[in-house]
Amino acid sequence: MEANQAHTPPAAGDQLVSVSGLTRQFPVGRSLFRRATSFIHAVDDVSFQLNAGDSLGLVGESGCGKTTVGKLLVKLLEPTSGRITYRLPGLDVAEGPENVPLEASAINGRRLRAFRRQVQMIFQDPYESMNPRRTIYDTIAEPLAVQGMGTVLDRVDMVSEILMLVGLTPPATFLFRHPHELSGGQRQRVAIARALVVEPSFVVADEPTSMLDVSSRTGIMNLMQQLAHGLGIAYLYVTHDLAVARYMCHRIAVMYLGKIVELGETEELLRNPLHPYTRALLSAVPVPNPEYRRGPPSIVGDLTAPIDPPEGCRFYDRCPLATNHCRDNPHPAFEEKAPDHWVACYEV
């Protein structure tokens, strides 16, 4: 666990991750002999910043590109265009001063190894995100083993320690189990342990609770908050559930078809949603209170796939406020309509 104690953890408030103009397209119908003519614009010109110790919720419907953003940030995917810069401890440009922002495209080779210690990911599916043939010890120790951190016995200690931290006690009863012997909630604890064992500064959590039962879900959400707070970890929380994002995050970014349409401090965004899509999303979330009456649905039509989207606002065809101006001009730019509350819409 003392893997990177040589480096001082980033002080809260430092800009940890900065994304600007991030775009990722996936070709449609490409084969060995045919070049793709259409592209899915999974992520299109997305920009945001995340400070050390901060938490950002990325919310949207399935297919809006939120998971792609997460994968781009942990370098599971390479962007088509745009920049991601990181200020990570122990990952400095060789000759520069401490904490010079590092471009994602410059991270490779030896630096990629250091990057993998600083940036981790928790996956959605607790059943599929662990190799069924490897024990819990193997799974959690994997980042340590591939990075050559500690001896085998050191790693047993480190894994035992982190198992206690995530509430799987006593560790000896879990070390040599296989994932299928654990419940969904326990597995997701193992997934958290695997991500945190290298003491990262930034974690992308991709819907870590969406496949869990109600009861274990709360445990995982509370655990993640405690650990992130205690260890000073910033996280990007990808989810389709606004209620979960509200509970987990300082700020929320709402995505629609590859674009962030609204970004703001959580309570402010929920109390005062500006973008018509955010409003529609909010009015559709069921509330666990039989006396609560929600407003009628405000948008029409169905979500389409962002294959070669037309010019104009992405939300034009479903928007209750849409005008010709929205159709004829490019997708609206991000504007700060209230302090730290950003919206991309012509009509608000």
């Binding site: 942990v74 993998r116 599916d125 662990m130 190799n131 994997e142 591939v146």
Partner: peptide
């Protein structure tokens, strides 16, 4: 295509 392959990549596995 299983997520544990992605997880191994994120862990730093070559």
């Amino acid at each position: 295509v299983k997520p544990y392959i992605e997880a191994a990549t994120v862990a730093g596995g070559g």
